[in-house]
């Protein structure tokens, strides 16, 4: 019987080895390990054996059975693995084909610049204020120390609607409006972005509509050195930590002293190049200490309060920062231009 079992084992293992599918393997299992299989048959004939032989043959039979079962299991695992492999092979795709597009949009470059500046000043405790684009002569000029007939009105030829109503020529009226609206004459610390309009013929450097951001801080003991410190922080965050600023005298009717702020040229690092016209400096914005007449007209006592104000043009900043070469790009909305600034 021993020989019979060994022969069966050999024969079964051979068939397991030859099996190529789960089905064949199952057939082998049924054929050798099934209730009607030869091993069961052998075990059934054990009654004829001696007492001594019985446990030996029994043990051997179980061992053979176990070996065959192990062989089937391991073969099964390898066939399954091969089949999965095959399935995965068949499922392979060309990952280099284009994906399904998701529509992408984005903010206008001017919005990105304006929001960046808003966030920067919000970080320094400023609020954001807005005001009307169609203004009264009073707020656009008179409340800003520009009485009728003042020669400085020539600096900004305006679009009038009636003698008293015009398209605002700057965002500065929001200064006056904000201060006037403060009934308790609290400190004011605000910036105001918005559209402004001037009688200019549109060309590469002029636009009859453009954007401005105005800033105003009025409080007790506001010093010009505070203006310098705030502008320095703005310039460094906006244009890079290595940028230097300088203030130089200028004139605006609503500030005294008035200054213009330059930053050291990024292209040549102040050495002088064609971008900065060999001066090493690039003009960024106008600023100054709020004129006492402006404070007074807005109901703030200039003996008690002082303040600073500044104003800048996001178009100019965008042109400097990104090298945009024509201001009209901001208003033609060429989708190819807009998309250049949609990336983070």
């Amino acid at each position: 019987m021993k020989e019979q079992l060994h022969a069966l084992e050999k024969e079964a293992l051979q068939k397991v080895g030859d099996a190529t599918s789960l089905k064949e393997l199952q057939d082998v299992r049924v054929a050798y390990l099934g209730k009607k299989g030869p091993i069961t048959e052998v075990l059934r004939g054990m009654g004829k054996l001696s007492k001594e032989e019985r446990p030996i043959i029994g043990e051997l039979a179980n061992k053979v059975r176990g070996n065959i079962a192990d062989a089937i299991d391991s073969k099964k695992a390898s066939i399954e693995a091969a089949e999965l492999e095959k399935q995965l092979e068949e499922e392979t795709i060309d990952v280099t084909l284009p994906g399904r597009p998701v529509p992408t949009g984005g903010p206008h470059l001017l919005t990105s610049i304006v929001e960046e500046i808003e966030d920067l000043f919000i970080g320094m405790g400023f609020e954001v204020r807005e005001g009307p684009e169609v203004e009264t002569d009073y707020y656009n000029f008179e409340a800003l120390n520009l009485p009728k007939g003042h020669p400085a009105r020539d600096m900004q030829d305006s679009f009038y609607i009636t003698e008293e109503i015009l398209m605002r020529t700057h965002t500065s009226p929001v200064q006056a409006r904000t201060m006037n609206a403060m009934e308790d004459k609290r400190p004011v610390k605000m910036i105001c972005p918005g559209k402004v309009y001037r009688r200019d013929t549109d060309d590469a450097t002029h636009s009859h509509q453009f954007t401005q951001i105005e800033g105003l801080y009025v409080d007790k003991n506001v010093r010009m050195s505070d203006l310098k410190g705030v502008l320095d922080r703005f310039a460094k965050q906006m244009f890079g930590q290595e940028r230097e600023i300088r203030l130089r005298p200028s004139f605006f009717p609503f500030t005294e002293p008035s200054v213009e702020m330059d930053i050291s040229c990024k292209v040549c690092n102040g050495e002088g190049c064609s971008v900065c016209k060999q001066t090493g400096w690039i003009e960024i914005l106008g600023a100054g200490m709020v004129h006492p007449r402006v404070l007074e007209m807005a109901g703030y006592d200039p003996k008690v309060y002082s303040g600073f104000a500044f104003g800048m043009g996001p178009e100019r900043i965008a042109m400097l920062k990104y090298g945009v070469d024509d201001i009209r790009h901001f208003y033609t909305n060429d989708i190819r231009f807009l998309k250049q600034y949609h990336q983070a």
Binding site: F126, K189, D226, K228, G229, R233, L247
Partner: peptide, 20 residues
């Protein structure tokens, strides 16, 4: 000389800036 002005930050109390 504006170059000789110091750089300072406003000494008024800290205001909470922000968007409405």
């Amino acid at each position: 000389g504006y170059d000789n002005l110091p750089f300072t930050l406003p000494s008024g109390g800290a205001q909470a800036g922000g968007l409405t």
